[in-house]
């Protein structure tokens, strides 16, 4: 079977874009087979025979089993992101079907960003005091970036909450 590996970087708030790209690849005849750090390995398939989905989900074997029972195939995970695919002939494949669960997904992402961003901020500040600005600077830069990500995720969440005021 023909395979190819591509390197691609997506910021955490671009997870929808990442998913779109993976589905464009599948529509083109390349379905995701495994994931690594910024590395995506695809295998040849009939164009349009797969839908690919990704979400942030803490490690949970029960969840993977549950997804497999519904006909989804587990591709793999990278950091806290998990990847599934499903044959298009087996029906529409989405991970979330209502606003509430989309919001709790964003909350999960937000919590991780807050934790990692907060840790970087503390380490950055501590290092700046003890070892000089240059050492602490890297962590502070990370913290800033993560906080920016948090802002983007929060924006998405607000849009959904507004929508929820009128319907679920």
């Amino acid at each position: 079977m023909e395979r190819k590996t591509l390197t691609r970087w997506f910021w955490v708030w671009q997870f929808e874009k990442e998913e779109e790209w993976l589905n464009a690849m599948a529509a083109d005849g390349w379905v995701l087979e495994s994931v690594g750090f910024c590395r995506y390995t695809f295998i040849r398939c009939e164009p349009g025979t797969y839908t690919v989905r990704t979400e942030m989900h803490p490690y949970d074997e029960e969840y993977v089993k549950f997804m497999e029972e519904t006909g989804a195939e587990y591709i793999g995970r990278m950091m806290m992101w998990i990847y599934f695919r499903k044959k298009t002939e087996d029906g529409v494949f989405d991970l979330y079907s209502d606003i509430d669960s989309r919001i709790s997904h964003l909350d999960r992402i937000g919590k991780v960003l807050t934790a990692v961003g907060g840790a970087n901020l503390l380490i950055g500040l501590a290092n700046s005091f003890h070892s000089g600005a240059r050492v602490g600077g890297v962590n502070l830069l990370c913290a800033t970036l993560l906080m920016y990500g948090l802002g983007r995720i929060h924006g998405k969440k607000e849009a959904l909450e507004k929508e929820r005021e009128l319907h679920e």
Binding site: Y63, M67, V92, D94, L95, Y96, S97, S101
Partner: peptide
């Protein structure tokens, strides 16, 4: 009404 698997699992 279609329940997506992730939504269903959480619910």
């Amino acid at each position: 009404v279609r329940l997506a698997a992730g939504t269903l699992y959480g619910a």
